[in-house]
Amino acid sequence: MTDGDRARIVGEWVEEHSSLVYRFAYRLCGSAADAEDLTQQTFLTAHRKLDQLRDHEKARSWLLSIVRNTYLKSLRGSQQFVAFESCDGFADPSHDQWESPIDGEELQAALNELPEEFRTPVILFYFEEMSYKDIATHLDIPTGTVMSRLSRGKAYLRQRLVTRLGEDVPVSSTH
C-alpha cells in the first residue's frame, strides 16, 4: 500500500467515522478537550497501523477499539481504584421511571460521577453494545465481575437520572 493510499483511506475514515469516534471518546473522557485529543490520536494511530487491519470493512470497530485501548492505556498509572465496598451506595432503585428522552449532558454528568471501574463497562455496554462476555475479555476481568459492575453502575445511573429529575417526573414503585 502506497503512502498516498494510506492517506486517502484514513482521510475517508475521518469523513465517515470521526463523529462516532468523537462521541465515544467524549463518553469515555467526559470532556470535550480530552475527547478531541483522543479522537486525533486515534486517527494518527490508524494511519500508522493501517497495515494491521486486513479487512477495511471493519474500520468502524477497529477505530473504536483504538479509542478504547488508548483510553485504557492512558489510565494506567493514574487510575484510582475505588474499593468495592465504597460503592455500596449504588442500591437498586425502587423506581424505574425516567424522563424520555434522557438528556445527553445529564447522562454525562452522571457517568462522570461513576468510578472508572464501573463507568467503562457501562459505556462499552451502551455505546458499543458489547456483550458482558466481550467486555470481560476486553477489560481482562471475570464475567461475574462485569455483570456485577454493570448492574451497580446501571442502578446508579437510573437512580441518579431519576433523582435529578424527580421534582418534575412522577415516580412510581415498580416492584
Binding site: V14, E15, S18, S19, Y22, R23, Y26, R27, A32, E36, T39, W98, S100, P101, I102, D103, G104, L107, Q108, I123, Y126, F127, E129, K154, L157
Partner: peptide
C-alpha cells in the same frame, strides 16, 4: 433509551 442517549453528543463542527 440509554443507548440512544449515549449517542447524543454534540460534535464540533470543524472537527473533520
Amino acid at each position: 433509551e440509554m443507548s440512544n442517549a449515549m449517542q447524543d453528543v454534540e460534535v464540533p463542527t470543524d472537527l473533520q
